[in-house]
Computed example of a mutant assay.
Amino acid sequence: MSIRYKSAAESRITISELMLPSHSNFSGKIHGGYILSLLDQIAFACASKHSRAYCVTASVDTVDFLNPIEIGELVTMRASINYVGRTSMVVGIRVEAENIQTGVVKHCNSSYFTMVARDDDGHSLEVDGLVLDDLTTIKRFLKALKRMEMKRKRTDEFDHEDFTPDDYMKELEKYKVKVTYRE
């Protein structure tokens, strides 16, 4: 079977939604959990469009809440496939909020969701390759690779059997912590 390739543009998704009082938290800003739910929905749609299959969220690597979203603002989310593996895809999502009275637009969130394609029996399904057709898609793919590499290094450093905090005590002294653990 030959590998099929798609450009990121073929799978891109944009959604917009007006933020209502029912979406707000106790401080009158839009609840982060509501935004996370929308992020998961658009990540699913983008990954499913690329893979032509049902997709599940494997991990959420980064969710940076940069600016609060107000009631009455129009939130627009743009999702794009940034990376593909054998069965997984990294979906990058940018969230902007527009004050519809003034036209002022602010960047509110950037997120990276790893999605896995599944067949009807729930088994991982191979996905189409990704065409890197401009500088932006190349950068996004390489950034996704770097995030995965950093995650692997972190796991290797801290999740091995012979880990000891003694190697890190000098570093911990710089922080507002009191270490009472002793081996």
Rank of each mutant, 00 (worst) to 15 (best):
R94Y: 13
T76R: 13
G103H: 14
A97T: 06
S80G: 07
D133N: 14
R86V: 09
R86I: 08
T76S: 15
L132D: 11
M89R: 07
V116Q: 08
M148V: 01
C55R: 10
M150K: 13
A53F: 12
N99K: 13
R140G: 00
V95P: 01
S111H: 01
G85V: 08
M89D: 11
K146C: 05
N99F: 11
L125S: 07
S111P: 01
K143C: 01
S124R: 10
D120A: 04
I69R: 06
V116L: 12
R140N: 08
D133Q: 12
L142R: 04
Y112D: 03
S88N: 12
S88R: 05
K146S: 02
E70N: 13
R152N: 03
Y54D: 06
A97D: 04
E149M: 10
N99V: 14
F113A: 03
D128T: 11
M115A: 12
V91H: 02
N67R: 06
L132A: 11
D119L: 10
K139W: 04
G129N: 13
D64V: 05
V127R: 11
L135M: 15
H123V: 12
D134P: 08
E70W: 14
A117R: 15
R94A: 11
V90M: 00
T137W: 01
R118W: 06
K139F: 09
I69N: 01
I71W: 13
A79P: 06
Y112S: 02
F113I: 04
R86T: 11
L130W: 11
K146V: 07
A79D: 02
L132E: 15
I69L: 08
T137Y: 08
V95N: 04
R94S: 11
V63T: 07
H123P: 07
S110C: 08
V56D: 12
T62I: 01
R152E: 02
A79I: 02
K146Q: 11
C108K: 07
T114I: 01
V131F: 09
C55V: 06
R86D: 09
A97Y: 00
L135T: 11
D61A: 01
D120I: 05
L66V: 15
G122Y: 15
G129D: 15
A79T: 08
S124E: 14
R94I: 02
E70G: 06
T76G: 14
S124I: 15
V60T: 05
I69V: 09
S111E: 00
S110Q: 08
H107E: 15
V91A: 00
M89G: 08
Y54T: 02
N82Q: 09
F141G: 02
V90Y: 00
E126V: 01
T57W: 07
A53C: 09
T102G: 09
E149A: 08
L125T: 13
A58Y: 10
S88I: 04
S111L: 00
T57I: 05
L74E: 05
M148L: 12
L125W: 14
D61I: 00
F65I: 06
K153A: 13
I71M: 15
S124Q: 12
L145G: 02
F141D: 04
K139Q: 12
G122C: 05
M115D: 04
T62V: 01
S80N: 11
I81G: 10
I100E: 05
V104L: 13
G122A: 14
V127C: 10
L145I: 03
T76A: 09
Y112G: 03
R94V: 05
V60M: 03
